[in-house]
Design a protein around this nucleic acid. Structure first.
Length: 530
RNA sequence: GGCGCGUUCGUCUAGUGGUCUAGGACGCUGGCCUCUCACGCCGGUAACAGGGGUUCGACUCCCCUACGCGCUACCA
């Protein structure tokens, strides 16, 4: 499919205002967005708020913010409107009522005066006999006279679709091919409640028609709903859109659908655990600006909070159910818009893999320039109280030096918080117990070397990494020992840690005075322990 | 129960009847590099759900079974 074969592409994503943006929803929205952009069409956001009465804007904001952060923009929708406003379903009820009336007039829907118990009894009887349930339409009123009669009995009505009971509904799915469903398998679905409010199938079809939606790209769970929606659309005389049903996103290591109702469970999921713990460590240091309920690896806020790059997430999600070929994995926005096509979407569910997402994130992070990294990292350090706000030039250059030295060790912006020892006063360093004992307390020879090395420091003028490299190598050569004999002791004395980036970088960033102070203090603490 | 969708390494996937002793990526793993960690480099592990057809030939087409998922709501 090339842009020239399709014109006037209009697609939509219809989130309900839940207060957070779910990762599966992002993927569906992304595919819609990509399809629209590829065909120079429009991507529309419609708010599915028929249920929620209040706080819609509050619950919608995080969703719109999430999309904006991810760089998924819409051409028509709540905050910007467009030719078919309003974009809130709660504000379009007149249209739905009108549609219901039209259906009623045409005899393609009917008022049903059954009481819920009566209807349920019929259904249960069918279930008991293990036969398919087909409503008897006993309480169906097809004209005013019948209605009056039922109403005289004190009955209320709801509106049901008068579904065909023979023949087939056939349609083409752009991902799955030709579909065929028996009409007999369909129920007389309710489209309007007793209180006049309308149900999803009706509202969705009416709005798709009103918005002139050309392609409905949505999750597979809607596939069996399609016949009844086509029925509604045809009954209303609307153009039927093309359909494309996406495979769902499954939980890590499982074929269960990733659900927004199982947030708590996911915190315990084995594959999510590592990511979550990593994130939590960062979030606790900056004081959780995301709400705890949305701090969850199935929600976009989580990733934003701890310093993921939107491009990494989008690139990862793109490949969850879609591929270009057998080797291309990195896509710029331009490339994905250019290359995206519905016919390369997979049919099978794809399970969400936090590890692979993380590997995309790392790659994207590493590609950033020093200044870009600085920009990302500074807010985290400020929020954690590690540096002053705004950061002085001195601080910024120290952070840059750390960024350069740490290099690939930083995958998320929040990872910078692991280097707080460079911003602590020399007498505030905390020593990790095990390496402190192993490299200093219980290592007489190493400690001896450290003391010797310490004595040389005051004479050194040039504390650059290059020079410290030369000096230390000379030192071990003179002593006739390997680097391993002294390096660990110095590192522990300077940073309190067993692991970290290159020692020469550490010394250079810290500078002469700090190095001396920290070694002296470590040595003093060792003496106290002996 | 009925209807529908799906099933290639642990995971994401390539594969559209012969190029497949099934390719790539993430993960895991052995080694190298090395001041630790990370990066990088070289190597390894591991899959066509099962059974019948069709065909000279099937991962690719058809059927059945199994398993998974969904719809069957006055949810979306």
């Amino acid at each position: 499919m090339t842009p020239s074969t399709l014109s006037n592409v209009r697609v939509r994503f219809a989130p309900s205002p839940t207060g957070y943006l779910h990762i599966g929803g992002v993927r569906t929205a992304l595919f819609n967005w990509l399809f629209a952009r590829h065909h120079n069409g429009k991507f529309i956001l419609r708010v599915d708020d028929t249920d929620q009465a209040r706080n819609v804007s509050e619950a919608l904001q995080p969703i719109m913010d999430g999309f904006k952060w991810l760089g998924i923009d819409w051409d028509e929708g709540p905050d910007i409107n467009g030719p078919h406003a309003p974009y809130y379903q709660s504000q379009r009820s007149d249209l739905y009522t009108e549609a219901v009336n039209k259906l009623l007039e045409k005899g393609l829907a009917y008022k049903d005066y059954s009481k819920p118990e009566e209807f349920a009894a019929e259904r249960q009887a069918a279930e008991k006999e293990k036969r398919q349930f087909i409503y008897s339409r006993t309480w169906m009123a097809e004209d005013d006279a019948q209605s009056a009669q039922f109403e005289a009995e004190g009955r209320d009505f709801i509106v049901r679709l008068k579904m065909p009971r023979e023949g087939k509904c056939e349609f083409h799915d752009m991902i799955r091919g030709d579909m065929s469903f028996e009409w007999a398998g369909e129920q007389d679905h309710v489209i309007q409640r007793k209180d006049g409010s309308c149900l999803y199938h009706l509202t969705s079809v009416v709005d798709d028609g009103a918005f002139e939606i050309s392609h409905v790209i949505r999750a597979i769970e809607h596939l069996p709903n399609t016949p009844r929606q086509i029925f509604i659309g045809q009954s209303l005389g609307l153009d039927i859109p093309e359909y494309a049903h996406l495979p769902f996103v499954a939980e890590p290591g499982s074929s269960n659908k990733l659900s927004k109702r199982k947030l708590d469970k996911y915190l315990k999921n084995r594959d999510f655990k590592v990511l979550y713990d990593h994130g939590e460590q960062i979030a606790t240091q900056i004081g959780f600006s995301a709400s705890p309920e949305t701090f969850n690896p199935v929600i976009v806020d989580f990733y934003r909070e701890i310093g993921f790059l939107p491009d990494a997430i989008v690139n990862y999600l793109l490949l969850l159910g879609w591929s270009l070929d057998d080797h291309t994995e990195d896509f710029t926005r331009e490339a994905m818009i250019r290359d995206f096509s519905l016919d390369r979407i997979n049919k099978a569910p794809a399970s969400f893999d936090p590890q692979k997402l993380t590997s995309f994130q790392s790659r994207y992070m590493w590609r950033l320039t020093l200044d870009e990294k600085l920009e990302m990292v500074l807010p985290y350090m400020e929020k954690a109280g590690m540096i002053e706000t705004p950061a002085s030039d001195d601080t910024q250059s120290r952070v840059k030096a750390i960024l350069e030295a740490a290099n690939e060790r930083i995958s998320l912006a929040g990872d910078i918080l692991a280097y707080k020892e460079f911003f602590l006063a020399d007498d505030k360093i905390e020593y990790e117990e095990k390496p402190f004992r192993k490299r200093l307390v219980n290592a007489d020879a190493q400690r001896g070397l450290l003391i010797k090395f310490r004595r040389k420091l005051p004479e050194i003028e040039d504390f650059s990494a290059q020079n410290m490299d030369i000096i230390l190598h000379d030192f071990v050569e003179q002593e006739g020992v390997g680097m391993g004999m002294i390096v660990h002791a110095i590192r522990v004395a300077l940073t309190g840690k067993a692991v970290g980036f290159g020692l020469f970088d550490i010394m250079s960033i810290l500078g002469k005075a700090s190095c001396i102070n920290r070694i002296d203090r470590a040595l003093k603490l060792v003496a106290q322990q002996q």
